[in-house]
Computed example of a mutant assay.
Amino acid sequence: MSTMRSVQTGAVNEIAVTEIARPVPGPRDAVVRIRACGICGTDVTFLHMGGAPFGPGGSMVPLPLGHEPAGEIVEVGTEVSGLSVGDRVVVNPQGAPSGIIGCGGPLGAMSEYLLVENAVVGESVAVFPDTLPFDVAALNEPMAVARHCVNRSAATPSDKVVVFGAGPIGLGATIWLKLRGVEHVVVVDVLPERLETALAVGADAVVDSATEDLTARLTELHGQAANALGQPRPGTDIYIDAAGAPAVFNAAVDNAKWGARLVMVAVQKKSDAIDLGGMLRSELTLIASQGYPTEIFEVTPELAEHQQRFAKLISHRVPFAEAEQAFELVLTPGAAEKVVVTFDDADDARS
Rank of each mutant, 00 (worst) to 15 (best):
M1L: 14
M4V: 02
R5N: 09
S6I: 12
V12S: 11
E14C: 09
A16N: 13
G26T: 07
C40M: 02
G41Y: 12
G41C: 10
V44G: 01
M49L: 14
G50K: 01
G55E: 05
G55S: 02
P56K: 05
G57K: 09
S59Y: 09
P62K: 05
P64Y: 02
G66W: 00
H67F: 10
P69E: 01
A70S: 08
I73D: 01
G77C: 07
G77M: 05
T78Y: 11
E79D: 14
G82M: 03
V85M: 04
G86T: 09
V89G: 03
V89L: 06
V90D: 01
S98H: 01
S98T: 08
G99F: 08
G102P: 06
E112K: 01
Y113H: 10
V116W: 01
V121D: 03
V121M: 04
E123A: 13
A126F: 12
F128Q: 08
D130V: 13
A138M: 06
N140S: 15
P142A: 11
V145M: 03
A146H: 05
C149D: 13
S153P: 06
T156K: 14
P157A: 10
S158R: 13
V162N: 03
V162H: 02
F164K: 00
G165V: 08
G167H: 01
I169A: 08
G170V: 04
L171T: 00
G172I: 05
L179S: 00
V188Q: 00
E193C: 07
R194C: 04
E196I: 04
G202Y: 04
A205E: 11
V207C: 06
R217N: 12
L218P: 01
T219P: 09
T219F: 09
E220D: 14
H222D: 00
P232I: 06
T236H: 03
T236L: 07
Y239E: 06
D241M: 02
G244F: 01
A245M: 13
F249V: 14
F249W: 12
N250G: 01
A252W: 01
D254C: 08
A260T: 03
R261Y: 07
L262W: 11
L262F: 14
A266W: 09
Q268H: 11
K269Y: 03
D275H: 11
L276R: 07
L284R: 00
T294N: 14
E302H: 15
H306Y: 15
Q308Y: 14
L313M: 11
S315H: 00
S315A: 06
R317D: 07
Q325N: 14
F327T: 04
L331M: 10
E337K: 15
T342M: 10
S351W: 12
